[in-house]
């Protein structure tokens, strides 16, 4: 038997009995951050590949969700700070070893770019919009003229943002469930998956729908591989990792992870997309919603369960 307890009456808010300093805004932040990263990645990639006409959803329509997603992510991040008035301190220093510092600088550059990218397509997507303001016209001309430069910048920035949502957690070795190097690529892939689902929802032609159908299937396979890799890594790990991984398969997190992430968030959409690929008509909204919900719940599970995992001494 080993029993350990605080006898000096320690009961600190958000720390005891289990750590819960990061609340729902962090889960929402990493979800929307990852989705926006994926949307901008696809937009930049296919623009640079010269597919502007064939793929209007990926390049023009879906990226309108990117600035919305990034804005929600930023609001959530700010909301979760407890010393809000000092947030500007983030931008007085750059600390590569701190994922949050790295991420805040990435967001600093990618946020205006995401707005500019969407802004450059406003009149194409919404033909009735007419700018009466000269400044807006100048900004629009600048954005349209520099789409290629923006795409070149967005490629590495969007990958960095997608990976950041994972390494934000994996950098903390104090939380065994997070301390896994696969989290960066896993969260990037998950972000790309949710973005691909959004693109499919906005898809305007059969070519784009079918291409993203294939991309989505591939991404689900890759994500499943990373998830298996992550889980096997825990099972091959030390006692603290073995205890941590139990959180994913037992209790409330077990239902959420196995039921909503693995089965409803990955397996079912994969089967539905496979049927769609073979020509069976399935309402597009079903796999899209399942993938988005699966991605969101995955972040909630990882953020909440991760904080419950800890060193034993």
């Amino acid at each position: 038997m080993k029993e350990e307890l605080f006898i000096s009456g320690r009961n600190i808010p958000n720390i005891d009995p289990v750590l819960h300093v990061w609340h729902w805004p962090i889960s929402v932040d990493v979800f929307f951050g990852g989705m926006a990263a994926g949307l901008l990645f696809f937009a930049a990639l296919f623009y640079l590949l010269g597919k502007e006409k064939e793929m209007p959803s990926a390049i023009k329509y879906a990226p309108f969700m990117a600035p919305v997603g990034i804005s929600i992510a930023l609001i959530c991040l700010f909301y979760d700070l407890t010393h809000k008035l000092y947030f500007w301190r983030l931008y007085l220093t750059f600390r590569l070893e701190s994922p949050m510092s790295f991420g805040s600088w990435v967001l600093m550059f990618i946020t205006p770019l995401s707005f500019l990218w969407a802004f450059s397509y406003v009149r194409e997507v919404f033909p009735k919009v007419n700018f009466n303001n000269e400044i807006l016209v100048v900004i629009e001309k600048f954005a349209i003229a520099n789409r290629r430069v923006m795409a070149i910048l967005l490629l590495p920035l969007s990958i960095s943002l997608g990976v950041y949502t994972g390494i934000l957690l994996s950098a903390f070795n104090a939380r065994p469930l997070w301390n896994n190097a696969i989290l960066g690529p896993l969260f990037l892939t998950s972000g790309l998956t949710t973005a691909a689902a959004v693109v499919i929802y906005f898809a305007k032609n059969a070519f784009e729908r079918q291409l993203f159908n294939k991309i989505l299937l591939l991404l689900i396979v890759v994500q499943s591989f990373f998830l298996a890799h992550m889980i096997l890594g825990y099972f091959a790990g030390t006692e603290i990792q073995l205890e941590a991984v139990q959180l994913l398969f037992e209790g409330k997190f077990g239902i959420m992870f196995v039921g909503f992430v693995l089965i409803l968030g990955l397996l079912v959409p994969f089967i539905l997309e496979l049927f769609t690929y073979q020509g069976v008509k399935i309402p597009v909204i079903i796999p899209v919603i399942l993938i988005l919900l699966g991605g969101l719940i995955f972040r909630f599970v990882m953020v909440d369960a991760g904080q419950m995992s800890r060193y034993l001494y």
Partner: peptide, 13 residues
């Protein structure tokens, strides 16, 4: 200089 992000709390074993 602290913004209250909680990263240090998460990182402390």
């Amino acid at each position: 200089e602290c913004i209250g992000c909680g990263a240090c709390i998460e990182s402390c074993p």
